[in-house]
Design a protein around this nucleic acid. Sequence first.
DNA 1: CTAAGTGTATTAAAATAGTGATACAATGAA
DNA 2: TTCATTGTATCACTATTTTAATACACTTAG
Lengths: 121, 121
Amino acid sequence: MNLMIDAKSPLPVYQQVIQAIKLEILSGGLRDGDPLPSIRDLAKLLKLNPNTVAKAYYALEAEGFSEGRSGSGSRVRVPPGRQDALRRAMLESEFRSFLGKAVSLGFSRDDVRQLIERISQ
Amino acid sequence: MNLMIDAKSPLPVYQQVIQAIKLEILSGGLRDGDPLPSIRDLAKLLKLNPNTVAKAYYALEAEGFSEGRSGSGSRVRVPPGRQDALRRAMLESEFRSFLGKAVSLGFSRDDVRQLIERISQ
DNA sequence: CTAAGTGTATTAAAATAGTGATACAATGAA
DNA sequence: TTCATTGTATCACTATTTTAATACACTTAG
């Protein structure tokens, strides 16, 4: 797993950890049943306090992305079908968010289409 | 001006005020020379402490979006040409951000193009 | 000029979020 | 069992954010 933590980001560190792991799950890098690094190991790797990592793991578990057991460790818990559905849903959600901002800025659908043409080549 | 403040948002209130006004400027709703509401009026309208609004105004001025004078009030200060440039730059920045997320999720350019086709009609 | 309204500045207090230190309980390998 | 490792829980500390109460100097309408 390749996590990047930006201490200067306005986004809290523990949320960056959540996002990074969630992204790893959604993109297929982590699959159902795969073990997550132990809280202390990951904390040492990222030079964070174990509590910060624990907070992220707790949130992931609350969202149904993982399962932790004392003594045993934490494992990814995502029904195989759900991963792809979530992945597509997130892409669509992100695009709609972008579209909303574009509209707020006063751009038309055609303006957006034109930008996309120009950029994504 | 139509400002929406979400007290439950993780984004600090004063930053929401900054964003909202900045967006109003970039979208053309507020133009060079237009007066901003007085700090006390806007605070009363949004049910915030005047200091919170003042903090936002201070930041806007520091970024060069406005100019405040004691006794006279605050006015939008954006060179006419710059507004459109900023507006386009922000749209492009937002799109690149979206594109980056899509790639992180493992989607190809074609996947993205397909989604855009489907949604933006 | 007077007075109301303006932005600015200072200081303090409270609440919340984030991080850190430590102890506890469960698991599993030796 | 023994012991190292695991997730969990609790408490405290720090920084940030927000609110609050004033005070000050400037502008402008009357």
